[in-house]
Nucleic acid binder design. Structure first.
Lengths: 244, 244
DNA sequence: TTCTTATAGTGGTACTGTGCAACTTAACAA
DNA sequence: TTGTTAAGTTGCACAGTACCACTATAAGAA
């Protein structure tokens, strides 16, 4: 048995992977699902200089109390906001994923109303930008294995949108049912049937009407807000579209 | 900005959490869902001496190529077998969860036919035993935050059993539909209706009949095996029991 | 004023997968 | 032959979704 193996050692292993947290931050801008990426600094001493990557970085063992706290901190640093929804996607770790050595990352994804935030390039990133999500990722090469991570986050998001109220967290506090329907369509990348959608959302108690409407030039639309602003609703069934 | 923060540092952080992988290994024994636990050595130098814990331990950066490979290795060491199903539950990390310092763990769960394996106490564990799963965990105190980890694994397992064929991985290669139904009932902790269950399983193409039956004294039962021995099937809907 | 247009919202029927209860079938044993 | 028991089937009810057609409400044009 290898000397670094196991909880039974009197001491801790001296060779440890380094540990990072990455966050895929999603928003809806210009009627598209977009993800926030940061450009890595163009220093030859850095891996993947100048390439775009998911926001994230090393755990700070003196500043962060937990993984999730670390994710929330990184999110706040980039957006200046507290995201209404944050979920862990999973973790990845291997000898090969970072040229600097054995590394692990803990991946989270966040949803937020894109109009509510300010982008903050910050000290450790050359630039910050929203990128449209096309298919399972974005156009262009990403640093490290971030294309794979992003694909996993997008897949998780789309899967859960089939049976939860997650897209509501992409909207501002007050919204109409057509707004919400559109958010579903943008994330899923396919049309959603109006009548069934409304029945589903109202029957599940996702939203409650406020006593105001939105005037748009045509028939005004009832405004709603979330019944529960922190927890998503789970619908009894997924969508079941006939034609694909 | 803290000196250990960020990918932008020329160097890597010197203070790193230590990294472990834990595996919740589930099986069905004596008509009960059980989980494999190891007893920690009774050395005063070890945290939680003598307590039971999920099998797992430190990543071995020289032996393990990836997190999942590490999980498979730990699984093989304890059971001497390759589990037909392994899935990551998630990761946890904090300053407080291990008295030795900031630590992270990557939690997996595995399903296997309990009769197919040999328990291997091994060098780094005083004992290995199956423990019945009662509610969200096991009777008795576990080391570290393993009660929370086990609860998360059990919750994930039960949730997926509602809409997948996962319990099939708890059975031997050949089984009858009543066997499979019983596995669902054991994991879910509630009865499952025979007729709807059979329709569901057969319509989804989970199994294929072999041309043999099992004689039990009463009417013989058709034997089946999995159509796909590696991937679970996702049913179009969850169970929808009327009375709870 | 009326007509047109566009979006919001409703109603009605079909369909699918599940729940449930009653039934039939196959083997064994008394 | 009959009774027992577990395996397997049949038929109907039900809930939630899909789809299509319809009505409602505002603004602006005619």
């Amino acid at each position: 048995m290898s000397p670094t193996d196991g909880q039974d050692l009197p001491g801790l292993p001296t060779q440890r992977p380094f540990v990072t947290v990455d966050v895929a931050i999603f928003g809806v801008l210009q009627d598209e699902l977009q993800v926030l990426l940061v450009q890595r600094p163009s220093l030859a001493t850095e891996p993947y200089p100048g390439l775009w990557a998911l926001p994230g970085g090393f755990i700070d063992v003196s500043a962060d109390d937990s993984l999730e706290a670390c994710a929330r901190r990184k999110l706040a640093v980039k957006t200046g906001a507290v995201a209404p929804y944050l979920e862990q996607v999973g973790s990845w770790g291997s000898k090969a994923r970072d040229p600097r050595g054995w590394s692990t990352t803990h991946l989270y994804f966040a949803l937020l109303p894109a109009d509510s935030i300010q982008l903050v390039p910050g000290a450790n990133a050359a630039d910050v930008r929203w990128w449209p999500v096309a298919g399972a990722g974005v156009r262009g090469r990403l640093a490290f294995d971030h294309a794979k991570l992003l694909a996993a986050a997008v897949e998780r998001l789309r899967a859960k949108v089939e049976y939860t109220s997650l897209p509501a967290f992409l909207l501002p506090r007050e919204f109409t049912l057509p707004d919400l329907q559109r958010a579903y369509e943008i994330v899923l990348g396919r049309p959603v049937e109006k009548s069934a959608f409304r029945t589903r959302v109202l029957a599940a108690g996702v939203v409650e009407p406020i006593d105001r409407q939105r005037q748009t030039g045509k028939r005004p639309a009832q405004l709603y807000r979330l019944a529960s602003r922190s927890e998503p609703i789970y619908f009894p069934r997924t969508f079941e579209p006939k034609r694909d």
